[in-house]
Amino acid sequence: MKPSKKTLLVYMGLVAILAMAITVQLRTMAGKDSNASQILRNDELKDSLLQWEEKYNSMAENLNQSNKQLEKMRTSASTYDTNSQAKSEELKNNNTLIGLSKVAGEGVVITAKDGQATKATDSLSDYLVHDADLRGIVSELCNAGAEAISINNQRIVNSTCIVCAGNVISINGEKVTSPFIIKAIGNQERLYGINRPGGYLSIMKDYTSVEIKKSNNVEIEKFNGALNYKYAKTIN
């Protein structure tokens, strides 16, 4: 007795579907693969970029780990006397000021998005959120007493510059693009005051989409890079 025709048909159908799926996959891959390998072959630079990016990422991870370990060592070292416990607290406090720890508190969250040109005669550039706009917002937030600020999770630290990098904006050397989420911790009412008529946000509203919201719990990530002095020496 042979297996019933029904079973055979089901098996055949299954195999056909799977084979088709594989073919489709292989085709997509083949197209992409040749494309990718061609680019990499043509341009070793891009290969090298990926390598450096990876190298940096793994080093940043190492750094993160060693920071945690150091923190542990410090705590255990400071358990011996109360004097160094106080110092260790001060150190922690300093690190929040520098931007080396994640912080939370009341504040505002601003969302700034590129606008849409409505007429063909409009200049497209007018409708974009530019690096100068972000600097303007940060400046107003500082003036309103912000204690911590981040843009798209890039913490603003003392070495931060916000510059134009072609069609994107670079902050802390990382590329950020619209929509920009700007978070600030500080006195909620004062920070919200940057929404006043004539303020920077109201000027931006003419061309781009800007929203500001109060929040009782704004969380701001720590700065991920390294902060140290190469050229500057302390004078005692």
Binding site: L45, A165, G173, L227
Partner: peptide, 29 residues
């Protein structure tokens, strides 16, 4: 790895940026 859209000079700046950041992180580490 969406890098195919980058221009050559952009790639170069990015490489040097990552190099710098890597060196800084390494020093701190």
């Amino acid at each position: 790895s969406d890098i195919e859209n980058l221009r050559e000079d952009e790639v170069k700046t990015q490489i040097s940026m990552y190099k710098d950041k890597y060196e800084e992180a390494e020093e701190q580490y």
